[in-house]
Design a protein around this nucleic acid. Structure first.
Lengths: 78, 78
DNA sequence: TTGTAGACTGGCGTCGACT
DNA sequence: TAGTCGACGCCAGTCTACA
């Protein structure tokens, strides 16, 4: 029930970040991104570029394919 | 031997497209993208956004996670 | 700690045309 | 068929700041 890949991506990022007990601030630092931008992405207000997706995956310590597999799962219907 | 995710992504797209006997033109049509932009991406001159990655994966008839798994394989050393 | 806002720079993605 | 170029509009991503 979530046809939007951008919103789904944000949801997954937020879930994983919280599950690791990280703040947006610390995630932003690890991924070399701006904290305000992390917030926009998590709420589906901005879509990241390829490089940013890699940076986020690295910061969350999982592979890009594993990250996007979770996005696909959310897209498939949560 | 290829540390650049953007170039690796381009290589994978080009390989898969050729393996399916598609032209850049037809891939661009399927993915609702510009042919010139497909060329830039395949040669690592431009990096796609999240939405564009999904469009490309769909046009190549494979999942985003599978697509990026192949990118990771190239990154890992071909 | 997070969401959001405004202003800003650089780059995504389109289009037309030429090689 | 594919690579590239210039011009263009729009958005990714940064920074500062406030609730």
């Amino acid at each position: 029930m979530n046809g939007d890949p951008i919103k789904s991506f944000g949801l997954v990022i937020k879930e994983i970040r919280k599950s690791q007990g990280l703040s947006q601030e610390s995630l932003a630092t690890e991924a070399n991104l701006d904290r305000a931008f992390i917030s926009q992405v998590e709420n589906g207000h901005k879509q990241p570029s390829l490089l940013t997706i890699f940076r986020l995956a690295d910061a969350l310590k999982l592979s890009v394919s594993e990250l996007l597999k979770q996005v696909e799962a959310v897209l498939a219907g949560n």
